[in-house]
Amino acid sequence: MNGAIALGYADLGVAALLLLAAGGLSLVMSLELEKRLLVAGLRAFVQLTCLGLVLKWVFALTNPLVVGAFLAIMIVVAAKTASARVEKPPFPVFLTALGALAVPAVLVTATVTSGIIGAEPWYDPRIVLPIAGMVIGNTMTAVSVALDRLYSELRSDRGRIVAMLALGGTGREAAAQCMRRALTSGMIPTINSMTAAGIVFIPGMMTGQILSGTNPIVAARYQIVVLMMVAAATALGSVLAVWAGYRRAFDSEERFVLVDDTTFER
């Protein structure tokens, strides 16, 4: 790699002007978004600058424990974010989200970093952390969408589910349709982005690699690996989340526990 063109504070200032332009637009059109734009812009500046500093430190250390701790923090924060995005969950879903994130985060990241890229040493943070970040970020969205959809489907399908149980169906049989819908909605964004990649947009990682001077053919191959790995991770994460999530909707006596007083009343 022949390196990226470095950006100075002056360049960031020009970028800030773009944000100000957006704020001005909000003022003119009285969208009342100026304040939120400003706060979000500042947050992005501070968060990303800190991330840059922290990553520089972690890269310099190249210590497996530090890499592991970094991964653990990413997974926990992602699980918190994912569970907070589930609307009106019938039970706390943090642990479900944590499990559904941790398994693909470890399995898929390891497959890509060690199996495909061949990181040397295997915990090289310069490779492991960006890959894990993409895996975790995408899986987080998939898990929260899948869980949110699962519980809204189970709630709106109460009558059907109880009727299926009454005919001798198991919880799994009764919830199958809701689970399918939840899995589909968890997977659709990934499938859409694979379909549109390269036609509608240049994917983010490929953009970054091209800007930093990588041969576009190599960048394309990396991007293909990333899309496949994101597909695998979101599929695995959604399946785990939906599977764990549906089980909690039925008790050990195979009764549907998301019933309320209106389920059987007329």
Binding site: L165, T170, E254, R255
Partner: peptide
């Protein structure tokens, strides 16, 4: 099991 019961007590 519940499903076997519900098949007979429907």
């Amino acid at each position: 099991p519940p499903s076997a019961w519900r098949k007979e007590v429907l």
